[in-house]
Design a protein around this nucleic acid. Structure first.
Length: 549
DNA sequence: GTTAGGG
DNA sequence: CCCTAAC
C-alpha cells in the first residue's frame, strides 16, 4: 500500500515530491547561498512539478499523501518487532562477561631475573600459572544470525522519502528477501548490528560485569574499573597526554576507552611506533637502557578469551549458567596450553633467545608485546573451530560451547622510570592480529582501495542518481548509489562511496603526476568532473528544471 | 538513519 | 577511513 502510493510519484526514474526533509534542506541550502530567487523558484517549481506530474494530485493532496505515507510507514515500522532490539536485550541478559583478572600475585616478579640471563621459555613457564580470563560477549555476533519474525520483510524505507525507481528496486529486493542468508542483508531493520550497536551492547555488558561476584573459588579475583584506572594512571606524566586527549575527546570515544579497552591507548598521539621487526630490536645499544636496572618487569593485566560460545536453554537457571561457563572455562584451561609471545605483531619463535636479544627488555620497543594462550590444537577436534559451533561433550545435552582458538592477553610492561614512578606501556600487536579484533569496536577498518571497476560503477551510478545533493525537487542520495551499484559490496558503505567520490573529484582536478594509487583512467575522471559539475554546480537548478519541464 | 564536510 | 553536526 505504502509502496504503491510512493510509486505513483515516480517519473522518469526521478522522485518528484519533496521529501519531508527536503524542503528544510532546500531552504537551508538556498539560505546558505543567500539566493532568494532560487528559493522562490524552488517553491514555484515544486508546485508546477506537482501539478504537472502527479496526475490529479494537487500540491496540497500531495502533501497530505506524504504525511499519510510517513505515518503509515512509521506505524508499520513500530509494529514490526525489532529483532535487533530484542537481541540487544538478550545480549544484556545473557552476557557472560567477567571482568579482567589480575592475578593475585603480581607477575612482576615472574621475570625478575637478569634480563640478559632469562630466556623466553623461562618466562613463558610462569605465565600460565597466573592466567585469568575475560570472556567476551558474543551475542552481538549471534544477532547477525537472527532472522526476522514471520519472515515478513519490513518496510525498509523510512518516512516515504524515496519514491523513485531505485527505491522500488530496494523494496522489491526486500520483498523477496531470503532468510537463508541473513548475513547479506542491508535491510534497514535487520542489517547486521552496527558498530555502534556493538558498542552499546558492550557498554551495557561492561557495566554489568562489575557486578559479578568478585571472587572465584580459585582465589583469582576480578579487578574493577577503579583498579584498571589505578593501574592505568600509575604514571601521571606518561598518561597526562592521554588524559588530556580523552578529556577533549568526543564522548563516544572516551567511553570506549574507559569501558572497553582501558589498556588500549596506542592510538594516542605521541605513542611510539617502531618497526615491525621485533627480532632486530636490541636493547644493549640503547643508551637509555643503561640507566634502567637489568630486570624486566611485566604485569599481565588480563587474559581474554575471544570467540567463546555457549548455548543454554532459556529455562536454565542462572546457577546452571554459571556452572556451564565454569565448566567450559575449566575444560579449556585444564587442557594443555601453549604460550606464545608476540612482539610488535611478530611471533617470537626462538625460545632460546634472551629477552635482551628479542628486545623484550627494551622499554622503547615495548608497545607491542603480548602473550597468547593457545589450547593444544591436537585436543581440539576440527568440529570445534569457531566457524562450526558443534556441540562438545558437556554434562548437559542442551548446553554447548566452542572453545577459543587462542587466548590473548592484554598486558602492560611496567618499567621503572623515576624513583618510584611506574610507567605503563600500552600493549599493541597481539590483539590486533587475533580473532578478537572482530569484536573490537575501536578497530579501524582496513583500507581497501577502490578498484577501477568499482570506480566505474560508482561513476555510473552517480551519473544516474546524483550525489545526494538537493536538486530542484529531487533528492538523490548516496544511499541510493549504494543500493544501486554497491549493494553486494558489504564493505562499501554509502559514506565510503561519498568519500570516494570526494577523492575522485579531487583526483580529477589535480595534475596526473600528483595522483597516487592505482591510476584511474582519464576517461573516468572526465566523467567524474562532468557528473560532479552536473549535479553540483549552480546551474543544476536550471538544468534540472529543463529536465522536469 | 543519512548527509555533508572537516580531519 | 573516521568522526560528527545537522538534518
Amino acid at each position: 500500500m505504502v509502496l504503491q502510493k510512493r510509486l505513483e510519484y515516480g517519473f522518469n526514474g526521478y522522485q518528484i515530491p519533496p521529501t519531508p526533509r527536503a524542503p528544510r534542506s532546500a531552504r537551508k541550502r538556498v539560505k546558505k547561498n543567500e539566493n532568494h530567487n532560487q528559493m522562490q523558484a524552488f517553491d514555484l517549481l515544486a508546485t508546477i512539478a506537482g501539478k504537472l506530474l502527479l496526475e490529479g494530485n494537487n500540491s496540497a493532496d500531495n502533501k497530505l499523501s506524504q504525511e499519510e505515507t510517513v505515518k503509515e510507514t512509521s506505524i508499520k515500522t513500530e509494529e514490526i518487532p525489532s529483532k535487533g532490539n530484542d537481541c540487544d536485550q538478550e545480549s544484556c541478559n545473557k552476557s557472560f562477561f567477567v571482568s579482567e583478572i589480575i592475578p593475585k600475585a603480581p607477575v612482576n616478579d615472574t621475570c625478575s631475573g637478569p634480563a640478559s640471563g632469562i630466556t623466553v621459555s623461562d618466562c613463558l613457564e610462569k605465565v600460565p600459572e597466573n592466567v585469568g580470563c575475560k570472556i567476551e560477549d558474543i551475542n552481538d555476533k549471534r544477532m547477525t544470525n537472527e532472522a526476522p519474525n514471520n519472515g515478513k520483510p519490513p518496510v525498509v524505507d523510512d518516512l516515504g522519502r524515496n519514491v523513485n525507481l531505485v527505491v522500488r528496486d530496494d523494496d522489491e529486493k526486500n520483498s523477496s528477501w531470503c532468510m537463508t542468508q541473513p548475513q547479506g542483508l542491508t535491510n534497514k531493520t535487520f542489517r547486521p548490528p552496527s558498530r555502534i550497536g556493538d558498542r552499546r551492547i558492550r557498554r551495557l555488558s561492561a557495566l554489568k560485569q562489575w557486578n559479578v561476584a568478585p571472587k572465584l573459588n580459585n582465589g583469582v579475583r576480578f579487578n574493577t574499573d577503579a583498579e584498571l584506572k589505578h593501574v592505568y594512571h600509575h604514571n601521571k606524566k606518561t598518561c597526562y597526554k592521554h588524559q588530556r586527549s580523552l578529556r577533549d575527546y568526543p564522548f563516544k570515544k572516551r567511553r570506549l576507552y574507559q569501558l572497553e579497552n582501558p589498556s588500549d591507548s596506542d592510538n594516542r598521539s605521541g605513542s611510539p611506533r617502531k618497526g615491525e621487526d621485533g627480532s632486530s630490536l636490541g636493547g644493549a645499544q640503547d643508551p637509555n637502557f643503561q640507566v634502567q636496572d637489568s630486570h624486566v618487569k611485566l604485569k599481565i593485566k588480563s587474559f581474554r578469551v575471544p570467540e567463546f560460545f555457549i548455548e543454554i536453554p532459556e529455562t536454565a537457571t542462572v546457577s546452571s549458567l554459571k556452572r556451564t561457563v565454569m565448566e567450559a572455562v575449566t575444560a579449556i584451561f585444564s587442557g594443555e596450553l601453549h604460550v606464545g609471545v608476540m612482539l610488535q605483531g611478530k611471533r617470537i619463535r626462538d625460545d632460546n633467545k634472551t629477552l635482551l636479544q628479542t628486545g623484550i627488555c627494551h622499554e622503547d620497543k615495548l608497545e607491542a608485546l603480548g602473550f597468547m594462550l593457545e589450547p593444544d590444537r591436537l585436543q581440539v577436534p576440527p568440529s570445534l573451530c569457531p566457524e562450526d559451533r558443534s556441540p562438545v561433550t558437556t554434562p548437559k545435552p542442551l548446553t554447548r560451547y566452542s572453545p577459543p582458538e587462542s587466548v590473548v592477553t592484554n598486558f602492560r610492561k611496567i618499567t621503572e622510570v623515576d624513583n618510584n614512578t611506574l610507567a605503563t606501556v600500552p600493549a599493541k600487536g597481539p590483539l590486533a592480529v587475533s580473532k578478537s579484533k572482530q569484536q573490537d569496536c575501536a578497530q579501524r577498518r582496513i583500507r581497501r582501495p577502490f578498484s577501477v571497476s568499482e570506480v566505474e560503477a560508482l561513476v555510473e551510478a552517480v551519473e544516474k542518481l546524483g550525489t545526494g545533493r538537493y536538486v530542484c525537487v529531487v533528492m538523490f542520495r548516496w544511499r541510493d548509489v549504494k543500493l544501486r551499484a554497491f549493494d553486494d559490496a558489504k564493505h562499501r558503505t554509502y559514506v565510503d562511496l561519498k568519500d570516494k567520490w570526494k577523492t575522485l573529484v579531487h583526483t580529477a582536478r589535480i595534475a596526473p603526476q600528483q595522483r597516487r594509487g592505482e591510476p584511474v583512467p582519464q576517461e573516468l575522471l572526465d566523467r567524474v568532473l562532468e557528473a560532479h559539475a552536473y549535479w553540483s554546480n549552480n546551474n543544476q537548478f536550471k538544468t534540472q528544471t529543463c529536465r522536469l519541464l
